[in-house]
Amino acid sequence: MSEPVRLSKRMSELGISSRREADEWIEKGWVKVDGKVVSQLGSKVLPHQKITIEKQASQEQSRRVTILINKPMGYVSGQAEDGYKPAVALISEDTHWKDDPSKEKFRPSQLRSLVPAGRLDIDSVGLLVLTQDGRIAKHLIGENSPTDKEYLVRVKYTRPGRLPDSELNMLRHGLKLDGKALLPAKVEWQNDDQLRFVLREGKKRQIRRMCEAVGLRVIGLKRIRIGNVRLGDLPTGQWRYLRPEEKF
């Protein structure tokens, strides 16, 4: 027989909500299991049981926004640290991209519970996702996230000659970080000093550490795509809303 699991965990597995959202809705009496309201935190369900949510939960979820920002250098992705500002500090009515095709209007309340779905180093630039939607955060940064990310990386080879093809192949597959083998990556030259990386994982300073391992020094790093969502023409330091039809 299948083992019962926490209701909030099951809702997260089904893509209904994040666990935190689920717990909030359970406390408010907005969750039903087989047609009956469940309001006790920690309640468990069996996999075959039907979970539904009240319209209040759907309405609350639909008001949650996801923001795409072209992060400049010098900003951290999450909490402020060592005197550096977090990327969320860049989000205001003044920095909202004038060519944003979304019809969503900026409200200060949108800054509440807005968290980075993935990180971008302080000395890296480009596409950063900030969201109030736990489902998107889970999809992008979950342990088994299927979403790939694309980077343009300007490099300088620190050894004589050019980077050998054998070392380029090591970047693609064969390196270890922190004692653990990295997943295969797509790595190819764009021009004489710029590489294109496509990764499906995001260990701390991963690309920089990969490059160091084969004698490359990173001069500049820019993320240009996450899944099906591209940075495009979004100017540095400005932001726009993820549109309803856009899917990572």
Rank of each mutant, 00 (worst) to 15 (best):
D123K: 04
R162Q: 14
Q49V: 07
Q49S: 05
L14M: 13
D123I: 00
R172F: 02
G35Q: 01
D148A: 11
E81A: 09
D148S: 12
S17A: 15
H139M: 13
P235D: 01
L14H: 10
Y157M: 12
I91C: 04
S58Y: 14
L14Q: 12
G118L: 02
G161S: 09
T52K: 04
Y75Q: 04
M210E: 03
L41W: 02
I53S: 08
L177C: 04
V129E: 10
T236P: 06
I219M: 10
R162N: 15
D193H: 11
L46D: 11
L242A: 05
G179H: 01
F248N: 00
F197S: 12
K9S: 03
T131A: 02
D192K: 14
V214Y: 11
T236Y: 09
S109G: 09
I207R: 11
N169H: 14
K156N: 09
S124T: 13
R6S: 00
G237Y: 08
K176Y: 01
P116N: 00
R243I: 02
V38C: 11
E188G: 13
V155Y: 00
M11R: 13
G78C: 06
D94W: 02
I67P: 07
K36Q: 13
V129Q: 07
L46I: 06
Q56F: 11
T158P: 12
Y241S: 08
A57R: 12
E245Q: 14
K103G: 04
V187E: 04
M170G: 04
L175Q: 12
N191E: 05
G35A: 05
P47T: 15
K180S: 12
K71L: 07
S17T: 09
L231E: 00
D121Y: 01
R208A: 10
T158E: 14
